[in-house]
């Protein structure tokens, strides 16, 4: 039997915070019927070994993403603009506290 997307519960993206003050980082995704079950599943699938002190889940379809075809205009122009990097500028002698 071929599974179609209609057979599946919605997909959720899971973000874990490893310690206080650390950012929530993407851990993976899973299927769940609703938010509460997504949180529970995330706990069981991605935090079995004490990986998290906090979990976020968000519906995958709610994430807005760049598309691969945007990659050129979005990201390439940055590569030849070395003046955007701090190393481009030499710091005059005598300047302190930088």
């Amino acid at each position: 039997m071929t599974k179609t997307t209609e057979d599946q519960w919605p997909m959720w993206e899971v973000f874990l915070q490893s310690k206080q003050g650390a950012p929530h980082e993407h851990a993976g995704s899973l299927h769940a019927p609703d938010a509460e079950m997504a949180i529970q599943n995330a706990r069981d699938v991605y935090s079995r070994r004490n990986e998290a002190i906090s979990i976020w889940v968000v519906r995958s379809e709610d994430i807005i993403s760049t598309s691969p075809s945007d990659a050129g205009p979005f990201f390439d122009p940055a590569t030849d603009k070395i003046f955007r990097y701090p190393k481009f500028y030499s710091i005059p002698k005598g300047v302190r506290g930088v």
């Binding site: 299927h31 599943n41 069981d44």
Partner: peptide, 11 residues
Amino acid sequence: PIIEEDIAMAN
């Protein structure tokens, strides 16, 4: 029934 629940029950 689903992999997520498989892991939950094993836990």
